[in-house]
Design a protein around this nucleic acid. Structure first.
Lengths: 236, 236
DNA sequence: GGGAAACGAGAGCACTGCTCTCGAACGTGG
DNA sequence: CCACGTTCGAGAGCAGTGCTCTCGTTTCCC
């Protein structure tokens, strides 16, 4: 952000990112709750107390890592989705979901950092809520594109959906509704439900809940995400 | 289970459950990762090392608490569902889901113990996989009842569902297919997807992912669970 | 009753996050 | 250019953790 004028400022920025890197490296094989400030300090050859010049507490460091992880999975999903034909909405959807899953399976500890139980004594810092929505925003954009090209199926299924739709108003946060663009709130709900389903499925797989339940995880995931896309209003 | 013949065995059983109770009590306000063996020992007026006569390690104690939590949420869902008219399949479904959510909101730390990121260095003990499926089994039973009374919608929606159904075989574990009874595998998949959606939605709500996203959580949950029931093949 | 197993308490080890102090390096205003 | 104030790093230390080991004591079973 700011250009580091003085040598001290430059050294500070350098060390800050070195600490972050070391923490990120440690996260590869230890898991968030076992992440140790002292171990990071050892790896960097500095005293443990020196870390506190750069991060006020362990939780602050974790928060920074959380933001990193959100950005990483968001970027992975965006990059994959960007390579797909803009007109093939379902392919875009499925590709984004698959990319999110692939990233998660490749980075289990970072995943549990952002989608597991919050490890600090329940503190959802404001810095994290913005990057947290990145994958969700990507999905919302696809739904929005579907609506823009007149390809969003508004009525869910049969009369039942209509019934629940009729009284569903004011359920979602205005800024989320805005992110979906000019679609009715029922579509926002199904979109958020699909987003939830995406990470619910990944979490269940990663946290062992599909042990002795789902054998072919790839096929299962694809199937569920396809149905989620359909229910969100996307038709091929 | 076994009748404690000797006084020593009786004292052992007594103390074991006292430790478990103290741990459970501590879980009300501290969260799984902050659960302290020494604090439990202090509360019980015994030395910390004495705990190890009853639980070989902290993880073993946590495992016991996990089983307790699974049983508790399972029992809550079952009790609520049992009070509903057996013929109203959707009401049974929705009631079970609501009970699971209500239990979760009332017991956040126990919830994150079973549906959050696994706190031990990734150990999913065999003792836990059985009670873990209790809520899922309940939902499966409802689907099974629907099939038994000829009220299970087998073809999902349109030709798309049929397409993905055609190649979906061998995806699920045989014992899960068996738990669903005489339904085709596609219905098992949608059932497991609905089960995933249930806890995915609860997790997102509990772990703060609906902050600035969903305002009316009750209405949102009902809506999503109703759609999940529909997609699982349940029709009112 | 005597031998063996189970038990409780205490000390101790290695580790954690975090605080405080103190001397050294650094940057900037006069 | 140099003195003063800020920033930084290291070390010691505190309170706490899970866990192990030892050493008497209690209980059980033959």
């Amino acid at each position: 952000m700011d250009a580091p004028r003085t040598a001290r400022a430059r050294a500070r920025a350098e060390l800050t990112s070195q600490i972050l890197d070391a923490a990120h490296r440690q996260l590869v094989d230890v898991g968030p709750s076992d992440l140790s400030l002292r171990a990071i300090a050892r790896e960097l050859g500095m005293s443990s107390s020196a870390i506190y010049r750069y991060f006020a507490s362990r939780d602050v460091l974790l928060t920074a890592l959380i933001v990193q992880a959100y950005d990483a999975i968001g970027e992975a999903a965006e990059a994959a989705e960007a390579a797909v034909d803009r007109n093939d909405l379902e392919a875009r959807w499925l590709t984004a979901c698959r990319a999110a899953r692939a990233w998660s399976l490749a980075h289990p500890h970072q995943y549990s950092l952002i989608y597991g139980s919050p490890v600090p004594g329940y503190a959802a810092p404001a810095d994290t809520i913005d990057p947290a929505g990145r994958v969700g925003l990507l999905l919302a954009r696809i739904v929005q594109d579907a609506a823009a090209t007149g390809r969003l199926a508004t009525t869910g299924e049969s009369e039942r959906a209509e019934e629940s739709t009729s009284r569903a108003t004011g359920v979602m946060h205005p800024q989320v509704v805005e992110a979906f663009g000019e679609v009715d709130e029922a579509s926002v709900i199904t979109g958020v439900a699909a987003w939830t389903s995406l990470f619910g499925t990944i979490s269940f797989e990663m946290f062992g809940h599909y042990e002795n339940v789902v054998t072919d995880r790839d096929a299962f995931f694809d199937d569920v995400m396809r149905r989620a896309a359909y229910q969100a209003g996307l038709r091929s």
